[in-house]
């Protein structure tokens, strides 16, 4: 397997007046060509920070360490100019909030065309013609008219489609979608997700789908990485992870959300306690204050990510696989 994107021991920290914030700690993951990886975790787990770091879009005061290679080319700490050439062309990202992510004063068509003009040196004329095709591809109704409209004239779902069209304009090999449907109506959510799925298949594009919703992941992703307090606590295939979560946090996450595929309708259980603040360092396992399976050892020694019985998990006492569920 050749990785399109390989993130290696990525950390992001901020030195603020109120102390150090460790937003991302030692995160590694790989995404293969044409594959979809789900990145899940509660709010504040460091999902956005990790991928904004990959894109080189963090605030100037962020301290980034580790590596991130796109098709073997290092992204972190490289010449900003070289990074700009990849960004928006080979590596694209769409964001959580479509209402505010488009420039209010530029026509939608021009916002799409601009990427082509800048990266491919296309003329504005041709770029606008391509923008029309892209809008049709992302199933924007009445695409020709939309080209000359401004973002405020479009609904949230339409704006997110425009964001996707911008991201797809230069045919990227890797698309990062940061909670692309969180701000949208449920019916629109499903449309956008199936659109992403289709585009992935058609273009052989790799997709990193950031979400706090395991249901979204179930429908789209091949692999899942679970983040907790800026760390990877579990990673594996969707099939295994949803059926047999090995990390108590993953299991709790699954219990806390409605499942259509649940064999018995179990009651939903919210995870007790609050996600840890990235400002305070929890000794031992970061999940231990909230973990039902915690033992004395968990408060003292931090579990490292290791492979046990087909699962990558960072836990001293992973949940054992029940027999016969997986071949």
């Amino acid at each position: 397997m050749t990785a399109i994107l390989a993130v290696d021991a990525l950390s992001v920290r901020y030195e603020t007046p109120d102390g150090v914030v460790n937003a991302v700690n030692d995160v590694s993951l790989e995404i293969a060509a044409g594959e979809c990886i789900g990145v899940v975790g509660e709010s504040g787990a460091g999902k956005s920070q990790a991928f904004l770091a990959v894109m080189g879009l963090l605030a100037p005061n962020a301290k980034v360490s580790g590596g991130a290679k796109l098709r073997g080319r290092e992204l972190l700490g490289t010449d900003p100019r070289a990074l700009r050439e990849l960004r928006g062309a080979e590596l694209a990202m769409i964001f959580q909030d479509p209402m505010t992510s488009l420039a209010p004063h530029i026509k939608v068509g021009d916002q799409i065309a601009e990427t082509l003009v800048v990266h491919k040196r296309t003329s504005w004329r041709d770029a606008r013609a391509q923008a029309l095709k892209l809008l049709e591809q992302v199933q924007v109704t009445d695409a020709a008219r939309r080209l000359t409209q401004y973002p405020h004239e479009l609904s949230g779902g339409m704006r997110q489609r425009v964001m996707i069209a911008i991201a797809l304009a230069c045919d990227p090999v890797m698309l990062i979608a940061d909670e692309p449907t969180t701000a949208l109506d449920v019916s629109v959510q499903a449309q956008i997700l199936s659109l992403l799925k289709r585009l992935m298949r058609e273009r052989g594009m790799a997709l990193a789908l950031i979400t706090h919703d395991l249901g979204v992941v179930a429908g789209l992703a091949d692999h899942v990485t679970v983040l907790y307090a800026g760390r990877v606590v579990e990673a594996g295939t969707v099939r295994r992870l949803l059926k047999q979560p090995a990390h108590p946090y993953t299991a709790a996450l699954l219990r806390s959300m409605p499942r259509i595929d649940a064999s018995v309708s179990e009651p939903l259980v919210a995870i007790r306690g609050q996600p840890p603040s990235p400002r305070e360092l929890v000794g031992g396992c970061p999940f231990h204050p909230r973990c039902d399976l915690a033992q004395p050892r968990c408060a003292e020694e931090r579990p490292t990510l290791r492979s046990t019985a087909g699962a990558m998990v960072a836990c001293h006492f992973p949940i054992a696989a029940s027999h016969g569920d997986l071949s």
Binding site: M55, L57, R84, E85, L86, R87, G88, A89, A92, M93, F95, D97, T100, S101, L102, A103, P104, H105, I106, E114, T115, V118, H119, M163, I166
Partner: peptide, 26 residues
């Protein structure tokens, strides 16, 4: 700091283009 300027940077535009075409007018 706004989201649409982040989008402009995510598109790989040069800092000057981000400033003059995307940020200055608003």
């Amino acid at each position: 700091r706004s989201n649409f300027v982040r989008t402009a940077r995510a598109k790989g535009l040069s800092p000057l283009r981000v400033l003059f075409r995307h940020a200055l007018r608003p």
